[in-house]
Design a protein around this nucleic acid. Structure first.
Lengths: 240, 240
DNA sequence: CGATCGCTTCGGCGGATCCCGAACCGTCCG
DNA sequence: CGGACGGTTCGGGATCCGCCGAAGCGATCG
C-alpha cells in the first residue's frame, strides 16, 4: 500500500482492499478463514507460513480494515471473517485466479471431522463438545452462565461416578468451569478444569482418540456406545 | 508483487490477482473498463491519473495476467476486460470497499450518449456510425472488406450528390476507406478519408454537433430528418 | 511465585514496487 | 519527406512493504 496515506475515516478504496488481499500471507489467512470458523493467531501463522510477529502485523491490518473481527479469549486471539461479503469477494478473486469455478472446500472431509469433534486446547469443542454441555445443562447437572458455570449437587454425584475428581477440581487454582464459545456451532461448550478433566477422562476411557496433524478427534465404537449410554448423545451424519 | 517470482505457466494465485488490483492506478483503469467498452491506453492513462509510460507498464501487467485483452488498431491500443469474471470480481471487491452494493454505472446517461453517436478521432462511431456503414453496404454503394473498403459507381454518385469530393478523396494519400471496429456495437463503421469527410459533412450541414468534454455527438432535429431522408436511419431509444 | 505460552510491539534489514524523464518505434497526416 | 502523435521501452530514484530477531505483556499452569 504505497499510496494510501491518510485512510482515516473515509471508506476504503477498491485498491486498498485489493492490496490487503494481494499479499500471499494475508491471502492464505483469509482463505483459511473462508469456511466461517474463527482461528487463533497461531493457527493463522501456520496456515500463512510466516512467523507469529509477521502474522500479528497482518492480522492487525486486516482487522483495522474491517475484513476480520477479533475476539480475545484468555491468551488466545480468535480472528474470523467480518461478513459474508468478504467470502464472496474472495470467491470472485479465486474465480479469476483459477479461471474457473472456486475450488476451496466449504465442507472438506477434514473440515467435517473438525466440526464433529475437536480439541479446543485441552477441552472438547465441535458438535460433541456442545452436545456434552447441552446434556449436562438440560439434566440440571451443570448450570452455565455468561462468565462461569457451576456443578449442581446432582451433577457432582454423576460426574464423580463417571470418574472425575470434582472436589479436587473445584479446589484447584484453575477456573473450575467456564463456557467457551464454539465457533463452528456458535454455542458454548465446557472449558476450564471441568472441561479439561472430562476430556481427559474420555481419552482415558478410549472413547475418543487424537489424530496426527489436526485438532480433530475420532470417536471410537466404544465411545459411541458409551456416550449414548452415559449422556444420551448420538452424533449422526446430520450433526448433534 | 514482491513474492511472485516465477509465475510461468502455473495458474496465478489469489494474491497475485489481488495485488494487480491493489494499485490505485490499475484499479482506476479496471473500473473505467467495467462497462465493457474498450479504451485506448491514453484514455486509461487519463482515467488513472498517471503518465503514459506508467500506464503502459500497468497495462502490460494486466494483459499478461489475462485480466485485459489488447487489440491494436493503427497507432492505437485498445484494452478491454478479458471476461465477465473480471467484472464480477471487481464488483465483489467494491462491495467490501464500500460496505454496500456496487455503485458504478453500467449504463449511465453519458454512456448512453456515447453509445448512440460519438467521434472516433475524425469519423463517427456508435450506433450512428454503424448504421451509416450498414446502410451504404446494404444499398451496394460501399463494399466493406476485412482491411479496406471501396465505393461503387452508384455510391460515388450518391455521395458526390451528398456533398463529398469522392474523386479528390480517392486520390489523396490517406487511406480512402477502411472499416474500424466499433467497441460498443462490435461491428465495423466507416473510417479513413471517406469516414472523415462524411462526418465533416454532417457537421457542416448541422445534422450533428459536438459537445464539451466528451466524444459524444448530438443529433439535431434537422439531422434526424435528414438522416431518415437520405439514409433511412432512425435512431430510436432502442438503438439502431 | 516462577515458568511457560500465546500474542503483540519495536527496530532494522533487504527487496520490490511505483513513478517519471528521456529516448525509440510505428502510424498517420500534410 | 518531415512533423506530429500514440504507445512502448529503458533507466534511475524515492518510497514502502514484508520479514524476522529481540523484547514486552497478560494469561495460564505447576
Amino acid at each position: 500500500m504505497t499510496y494510501f496515506s491518510g485512510m482515516s475515516a473515509t471508506a476504503p478504496s477498491i485498491a486498498e482492499v485489493a492490496a490487503l488481499v494481494g499479499n500471499p500471507a494475508r491471502a492464505n489467512m483469509l482463505t483459511a478463514l473462508l469456511d466461517g470458523r474463527a482461528l487463533t493467531a497461531g493457527e493463522l501463522a501456520h496456515a500463512a507460513g510466516v512467523s507469529p510477529q509477521t502474522t500479528s502485523g497482518h492480522l492487525a491490518k486486516l482487522a483495522e480494515a474491517r475484513l476480520l473481527l477479533l475476539s480475545k479469549q484468555g491468551r488466545h486471539a480468535y480472528y474470523r471473517l467480518a461478513s459474508p461479503l468478504i467470502g464472496r469477494m474472495l470467491e470472485g478473486i479465486m474465480a479469476v485466479a483459477a479461471d474457473g469455478p472456486p475450488r476451496y472446500r466449504p465442507r472438506s472431509r477434514g473440515d467435517e471431522a473438525l466440526r464433529t469433534a475437536r480439541t479446543c486446547y485441552d477441552h472438547l469443542a465441535g458438535r460433541l463438545g456442545v452436545a456434552l454441555a447441552d446434556t449436562l445443562s438440560a439434566r440440571g447437572q451443570v448450570e452455565m452462565g455468561e462468565d462461569g458455570g457451576e456443578v449442581t449437587e446432582d451433577g457432582a454425584a454423576f460426574l464423580t461416578d463417571f470418574g472425575l475428581p470434582i472436589t479436587d477440581l473445584r479446589n484447584g487454582r484453575r477456573t473450575f468451569c467456564r463456557p467457551c464459545l464454539d465457533w463452528s456451532e456458535r454455542r458454548p461448550h465446557l472449558a476450564g478444569a471441568l472441561g479439561a478433566a472430562l476430556t481427559d477422562r474420555l481419552f482415558t476411557l478410549g472413547w475418543i482418540m487424537r489424530q496426527r496433524d489436526t485438532r480433530a478427534v475420532l470417536i471410537s465404537a466404544k465411545g459411541r456406545a458409551g456416550l449414548k449410554a452415559a449422556f444420551g448423545i448420538e452424533l449422526g451424519a446430520d450433526g448433534a
